[in-house]
Design a protein around this nucleic acid. Sequence first.
DNA 1: TTGAAAGCGCTACCAG
DNA 2: CTGGTAGCGCTTTCAA
Lengths: 336, 336
Amino acid sequence: MPTIKDVARLAGVSVATVSRVVNNAPKVSEKTKRNVNKVMDDLGYTPNANARALVMQKSMTMGVVIPDLTDPFFALLANGVEEAARANKMQLLLSTGMIDADSERKAITLLIEQQCDVLVVHSKKLCDEEIIKLAYRKPGLVLIDRYIKEIADRCVWLDNFEGGKTAARHLLSLQHTEFACISSKYEIDDPELRTNGFKSEIEKAGYLLDETLVGYGEPNLQGGEIATQTLLSTGKKFTAIFVYNDAMAIGAISTLENNGFKVPNDISVLGFDDVLLSRYSRPKLSTLHYPIKEMAIQAANIALDAVSNNIKVPQKREENKHVPIIVKRESTSLNK
Amino acid sequence: MPTIKDVARLAGVSVATVSRVVNNAPKVSEKTKRNVNKVMDDLGYTPNANARALVMQKSMTMGVVIPDLTDPFFALLANGVEEAARANKMQLLLSTGMIDADSERKAITLLIEQQCDVLVVHSKKLCDEEIIKLAYRKPGLVLIDRYIKEIADRCVWLDNFEGGKTAARHLLSLQHTEFACISSKYEIDDPELRTNGFKSEIEKAGYLLDETLVGYGEPNLQGGEIATQTLLSTGKKFTAIFVYNDAMAIGAISTLENNGFKVPNDISVLGFDDVLLSRYSRPKLSTLHYPIKEMAIQAANIALDAVSNNIKVPQKREENKHVPIIVKRESTSLNK
DNA sequence: TTGAAAGCGCTACCAG
DNA sequence: CTGGTAGCGCTTTCAA
């Protein structure tokens, strides 16, 4: 690969001049500019971003850590960060770290080594203290999808409890009174918060959420199918189910229909997330929209602000908290 | 951020020594090693990958360019590259470049500037010559999902024509004789190749593919719905449809069912790609498995070989060509 | 087993 | 408008 020196030599100018035309700095004569550009073209010269980052002390690079690219939810999160990167002429680095604290830590470390200026991190397994420490070390690090009080202005998160309540309100407004709920067995806060929010609003309205009508499963199609089967096997009646996520909800619909129930006529099914899947399901899934892409972009922008120490307006915490909203499609309807 | 010098100073050793313990080079006494490690810990020192890349002349970085992260197909491609990167302790850089040649070129250039050692590129719009030139400049660049004769050993691609034929054979074996086909209106080779392959095999078997029973649409749910509506409006009879991709196929099923046709009982629907979606559809979609993740991993490995000039065994071209295979699920069945 | 120093490719400052 | 040069953080000889 040709370097700036090669260009300088062939163009008969100094490296300083080449640098100037590369970054089109003001004071270069048209003539030399043309000349240098030509040489660069001939040589197929590309500036070395590493060298530049080294001297500039910034890499124009934005990192994101997510558990898994194949999960459409996280792909959308990455997509948001990528868009923010592109908008700021930065390059996206991506690390995946799932399952355990170790791999999450490793993913973050790798990105820090690469000198990412900003870092949008999705981490569920690293403990609070460790993340707080990282956040202090790295001003451009923002946490997404998780709330830690001590660094609240560096977090962008969803109010899952409120989401559960919103779900309940939707179903209640459709005059349902007999509810079931499917949750995830994964050990993170979200499922519990959603279920509790749902339950609290149901009870506030004077109804009950039967303990045995709360099912659990892996947060995917099959998990939804199995959990629904279990719900059905209680023999208890319910006319509406609130499901942890869209994938499980689609599994629920499938099992329900296989057992002779029509969705939504006999039973309404409400998902969560509003991923692509929900629009592809038949009936199209009613769900709660999780604005993950917008949240990702916001996270990136907060980080960007932090590093360019723009007056560093400490964000109002409330603005970093998001609330999912109902997207009513076809899988929920009036109870009759 | 603390640098190697800070560590050296505080540990009372030279930077050379620190470097040795960071890279755990052999000849360092246990004692200094412990000492230096402690200082690094206290300081929260992280090596600067840019500086390292600069002197080592390699970045331990793998780049991938795809059109769009939100498309599950491309997410899976990126996922494959990411896995290869992780397996080789490299970091993943991702650039998106869709729509036009310009943005594809820009995406690739960005990655080259970042000094990615290997580069897996999905590009449909850049012309052959330009890609060939890039491939010569950059030994670690491998093209995925496209075949260019001159650099065949740097390409990993799918035989779309053969895929169309496979689709036909599947439907033929199910005793269908009246066919329709839905293609994509996008201006790339793939749709045409698939349709032509399909047609050729149908005709070989002595049947016809009615020109008016070949529909076109955007390669998404809605495109499939609209195209199917058009097909239906011809009033002509068909018992099997071969659809360009899974998203459109699901749209087709939806429209078919809305018009009173049962899938697969009245009409069989066959998709292409075998993305996640196909398992979430009801009936579950029969489709052709496009091994994009494996192809991505292979592409990364070819690139890796090329840069570490491992005897540089020129790959057998045939090995770089992949053929989709039928995944029979529920949307296709015996014609009766 | 350790240290000194050159140099990777680039930017930015200071001179001219 | 242009050139010379220090130095970004690191690895890697070469000496000690």
